[in-house]
Nucleic acid binder design. Structure first.
Lengths: 113, 113
DNA sequence: ATAAGCTACCTTGTTATGCAAAGTAGCTTA
DNA sequence: TAAGCTACTTTGCATAACAAGGTAGCTTAT
């Protein structure tokens, strides 16, 4: 068991989370790693994030733009395309439609009604 | 995109759900496919379920026992081992610790706009 | 200057998992 | 005899997370 249970559970989820964060405002890769950490997705490394960004870009769900940084290396800011907004909607729908059944299944025990 | 978003999201989740259902009471494969359906995990086929059962068995998280059926083919009933109970606990913990951050992330924009 | 440490990006290879698709076979009903 | 449900099994593929490696700019302390 090299890949942790957590890694498996995150499959498909990270992509949606990244789309959602980028939707709020233009964001760059390193910032994403910090934000995900803050939100509580603590073990998500850059080795996960950058490949996702490249993939999203290739699928035309986001577009990137290099910008000068006043301090430190330059940053590549991403924003959603129209396709990205659609993909995020689809993700949110699928997430809800999985979350609810799962909660019902693992909650059965000792619950009223 | 051959594999659906839904398939990706289900990774790691199905295993936990199956453990949870089996914990309630001894259950066999075909029954699981019906129950998952009823709970709302509608596209989960036997091609997913039986491989999971074999895997769980190989990892000593469940044990199976063939029993005669009064109507139809015989059934292989499974129940949790001690390792299975532990694995289920771990799953529930990881599920909660992912669900909450994700809900926070995709909920941000919900109100305004 | 130089080292240390943060910021910021990128790539490769491994591995696990869902599941489509195919197969086998028992029982029931028409 | 056929259809249709029940019930289990196996093979092969696509995909995503991420560890582990790398490059490089900027800042601060020694």
């Amino acid at each position: 068991m090299q890949l942790s249970l957590r890694s498996q559970l995150l499959k498909g989820i990270l992509e949606g989370c990244i789309l959602s964060i980028i939707k709020q405002k233009q964001t760059y890769g390193y910032e994403l790693s910090v934000k995900l950490q803050e939100f509580g997705l603590s073990d998500v490394s850059e080795g996960s994030i950058y490949p996702i960004l490249l993939r999203l870009q290739k699928e035309n769900l986001i577009v990137g733009e290099m910008k000068k940084s006043e301090a430190g290396p330059n940053r590549k800011y991403y924003q959603l395309t129209e396709g990205g907004h659609n993909a995020l909607s689809e993700f949110m729908y699928q997430w809800e439609s999985i979350k609810e059944p799962v909660d019902r299944i693992i909650d059965i025990k000792g619950r009223r009604s």
